[in-house]
Computed example of a mutant assay.
Amino acid sequence: MDIAFTRARIAVFIDGCFWHVCPEHATSPAANSGWWAKKLSTNQERDAATNRHLAELGWQVVRIWEHEDPIEAAARIAAMVRLDSPRSE
């Protein structure tokens, strides 16, 4: 987890396009292709397992791709935190 909003129970991950197999920018290295395919597939499986585990604990998971506009990503996260944070009276 890269950022945790504990009161709102929101976990934010910033995922690299190569390492997490971005649907827009993923590449497959030619050298050692079998090893890389397994490595990247394992990364995806771990990400999915992490998402499930955090969801079971009551957390929302936000995954931001490295290529996403940081202002838009921050606005999306801020909106979620505002909606889910406890209100003070």
Rank of each mutant, 00 (worst) to 15 (best):
V21R: 15
A37L: 12
H20Q: 05
P70H: 04
D47C: 06
G34L: 07
R7F: 11
S33Q: 14
A48S: 10
T6P: 15
T27F: 07
L83I: 08
I77F: 02
A79S: 07
L83W: 06
P29G: 02
A74Q: 03
D84R: 14
S41W: 04
R7Y: 09
H25N: 03
H53C: 13
R46T: 10
G58Y: 02
F18C: 03
G16E: 01
V21C: 12
R76K: 04
L57N: 11
I3S: 04
I64A: 02
W65Q: 02
Q44F: 09
Q44I: 12
T42E: 05
N43T: 12
D69N: 07
T42D: 05
A75D: 07
P86Y: 09
A26C: 13
G34P: 11
A4H: 12
V21D: 05
T50D: 03
W19L: 04
P23G: 07
I64T: 01
A74M: 01
E72Q: 14
D69K: 03
H67W: 00
L83E: 10
V81N: 06
A74S: 01
T27P: 07
K39R: 10
G34F: 07
V81R: 00
E68R: 14
F5D: 04
R46H: 08
Q44H: 06
Q44A: 11
V61D: 00
G58M: 09
P29F: 03
V81D: 00
W19N: 06
A11R: 08
D47E: 00
R63T: 09
S28P: 02
D15S: 02
A31G: 11
M80E: 03
W36N: 02
M80F: 07
T6H: 14
S85W: 14
P86K: 11
G34S: 10
N51A: 13
W65G: 05
Q44D: 08
R63L: 08
E24S: 15
P29N: 02
L54Q: 07
N51R: 14
A31P: 04
A73T: 06
A79T: 12
A11W: 05
T42M: 05
F13E: 09
C22A: 09
T6E: 06
D84I: 00
P70Q: 05
P23M: 04
D69H: 04
L83S: 12
R46V: 10
N51G: 15
I10K: 05
C22D: 07
L83C: 11
A26D: 09
P23I: 04
A37H: 13
S33N: 13
P70C: 07
A8K: 00
A55K: 15
Q44Y: 06
W59F: 04
